[in-house]
Amino acid sequence: MYSLWRTLDRPLLRDIALVCLAVGVIGLSYGAIAVASGFPVWFPVVLGLLVVAASSEFLFIGIIAAGGSPVAAVLAGLLVNARHLPFGLAVPDVLGRGAWRFLGTHLMNDETVVFALAQKDTARGRAAYWACGLGIMVCWPAGAAIGGLAGTVIHDTGAFGLDAMFPAVLLALILPALRGDRDKRRAALAGSALALAAVPFLPAGLPVLLALAGLSLTTARKEAVR
């Protein structure tokens, strides 16, 4: 683990810390919403520790709070989280070795994957992945606990523009990959257009998976299929 921290330089650590902090603040509203919906404080905290995928947890809590069935809440959450399968295909080298791999696998989420992909080499990618993953493992449930206890202190994270931070984080980290690669750019644009067109008609999670059809525009696929 020591080499992991040595690989991380100050600017990268600062960027990761900012993202973890933002995740923690969103955790505040997640915890507050869950408790306001009638859940005990520990529920969003344990859910956060065991699932570590914010959008599926918001959805799970929201569906139950609206009177939906637990089965519907689980299925909706799983649908949103299905993208972790292709994520795992893309970043198998950063998950760690031996028993660490079980924890490394659990740390896989949008933020850790995008930080790993944005690094130049695997060692740096692995270090960024772990630092971000462990930070989120702490900040997300801690935010949920504080938000659940403090109640509606920060109910409206929208007022601070926090909802714009998540897409901005992902955008900033994938832009370098898109800039240098026409194939990726085309696939990403086509996939995004497809996802946006599907949003009004499909349940949450599916539009993003549908975006994978954009891969058909890459030359890599044509050659791989051949």
């Binding site: 992909l117 992902l170 980290l173 898109l178 990403a188 996802a195 946006l196 949003v199 993003v208």
Partner: peptide, 16 residues
């Protein structure tokens, strides 16, 4: 292609 698919997923997450 698998690496590209992660980028495509992340890009569509940005868009949505």
């Amino acid at each position: 292609l698998m690496e590209t698919s992660a980028i495509v997923l992340l890009a569509s997450l940005v868009a949505t």
